[in-house]
C-alpha cells in the first residue's frame, strides 16, 4: 500500500504518463460512466444558458439570441411565480415541522417493543409504502379521501353534516394537511431505519448501568437513547433544511388539482405546468430561468448545510 502511494505522486511528466498507462483499465472502466454523466448531467448544464436567451426552435440552444436578465425581471412581476415560491417554502417547512419528528418517535417506540418478531413485523409493515411510486399511492389515497371514499363514510357516521361538506381534496384549507399526512404515511417508516441503526450502535453497558441505578424504561429512553442518537438527529435535521427547495414534485403533481393550485403549486410543478401543461409551449427561456433560480438557492443551502455538518465532524455527503 505504501509503495502504491508513493508511485501515485509522480514527479515528472513521464512518471505521470507511466502512471496513467499503468492504470489504463481503470480509465477504461470510467469511460461509460463518464459518458453518462457528461451527456445526461452536464449537457443540461450547458442548456442553462437559455435562462438568458430568447429560445427559438429553429436556432436551438446555442443559436438563440441573448436577452440578458429579462426572464429574471419577468419573475418579479409574475404573480403565479411568487405563489409557487412561497408555497415551496411553506410546504417544505410544514413537512419539517410535522414530518421530521415522526420517524424519530416511531424509532424510539419500535425499539422498545417487547417481542423481537413483532418489532420486525411492524418495522417491515411501516416501511413498505416507501417502495411504491406516488402514482400508486395517489391512487390509494385519492380513493380513500375522495367523494365516495371510506374516510368520508367514516366521517358521515360521526357527523353527517361534515360529510355533506366533504371537500378534502379540493379545499384550500385542508389540502396542505392532506399532503403532509400522506407523506408521513408513505415515508415515516423508511425514515426510522437510520435512527434504529443509530440506536443499535449505543453501548449496551449504559443501559445496564442505568438499570443498576434504578432507572425505569422511560428514564432510559430519555437519558440514554435520545442523547445517544442526538448527533444523528441534528445532522438529519440540518440536511433536511438544506433540501428545503425540494418540496415534493412527485407527490404534489399526482395529487393536486386546479382548485388547490394557490396553496399547492410549488416551483417544480409551476415550471412543468407552464411549459408542458397546456400543450408544449415554445417559451423555454422563462421556465429555464425559474429552474435556475430554484437550483441556485438549493445548491447554496445544501452546501451550507453540508459545511456545517462537516464542521460538526460528520461526513456531509450523506
Amino acid at each position: 500500500m505504501a509503495t502504491n502511494r508513493s508511485l501515485s505522486r509522480p514527479h515528472g511528466r513521464t512518471d505521470l504518463k507511466k502512471e496513467i498507462w499503468r492504470n489504463r483499465y481503470f480509465y477504461l472502466m470510467l469511460l461509460l460512466p463518464m459518458a453518462f454523466f457528461i451527456i445526461f448531467k452536464y449537457l443540461p448544464l450547458y442548456g442553462l444558458q437559455l435562462a438568458f436567451k430568447e429560445y427559438m426552435l429553429n436556432k436551438g440552444i446555442t443559436g438563440s439570441p441573448w436577452i440578458g436578465f429579462d426572464h429574471f425581471k419577468r419573475m418579479t412581476v409574475e404573480p403565479e411565480f411568487f405563489v409557487a415560491f412561497k408555497n415551496t417554502i411553506i410546504i417544505s417547512l410544514y413537512r419539517i415541522i410535522f414530518g421530521f419528528p415522526v420517524p424519530i418517535i416511531l424509532a424510539l417506540m419500535i425499539n422498545e417493543v417487547y417481542f423481537n418478531r413483532f418489532r420486525r413485523f411492524t418495522q417491515t409493515i411501516l416501511t413498505f409504502p416507501h417502495f411504491l411510486s406516488w402514482v400508486i399511492v395517489s391512487g390509494l389515497v385519492l380513493n380513500m379521501f375522495g367523494d365516495s371514499g371510506v374516510i368520508k363514510k367514516l366521517v358521515a357516521l360521526y357527523s353527517p353534516e361534515m360529510a355533506t361538506n366533504w371537500n378534502m381534496l379540493y379545499s384550500k384549507a385542508s389540502f396542505r394537511s392532506f399532503l403532509i399526512i400522506t407523506d408521513i404515511w408513505k415515508e415515516a417508516g423508511w425514515g426510522t431505519i437510520i435512527y434504529l441503526a443509530a440506536i443499535a450502535g449505543i453501548d449496551p453497558s449504559y443501559y445496564e448501568a442505568a438499570t443498576i441505578d434504578g432507572c425505569n424504561r422511560l428514564q432510559k429512553v430519555w437519558h440514554i437513547t435520545i442523547p445517544g442518537i442526538m448527533g444523528i438527529i441534528v445532522i438529519q435535521l440540518l440536511l433536511r433544511v438544506g433540501w428545503v427547495m425540494e418540496a415534493g414534485f412527485d407527490q404534489i403533481f399526482n395529487l393536486y388539482t386546479p382548485p388547490v393550485y394557490p396553496v399547492a403549486d410549488i416551483l417544480d410543478t409551476y415550471v412543468y405546468r407552464i411549459t408542458f401543461g397546456r400543450g408544449v409551449s415554445m417559451d423555454m427561456g422563462f421556465p429555464t430561468a425559474v429552474g435556475l433560480f430554484k437550483n441556485v438557492i438549493n445548491f447554496a443551502l445544501i452546501m451550507t448545510a453540508n459545511a456545517i455538518a462537516r464542521r460538526a465532524g460528520h461526513d456531509g455527503i450523506i
Binding site: M34, L43, L45, L48, T275, M284, P287, T288, F299, I302
Partner: peptide
C-alpha cells in the same frame, strides 16, 4: 472525477434543459 460526479447530486440544469437535450 469524483468531484464532477458528486457535484451532479447537488446541482442540475433543471427540467427544461434536460428535456431539450
Amino acid at each position: 472525477v469524483r468531484f464532477l460526479i458528486v457535484f451532479t447530486m447537488y446541482f442540475s440544469g433543471g427540467i427544461i434543459p434536460y428535456f431539450l437535450i
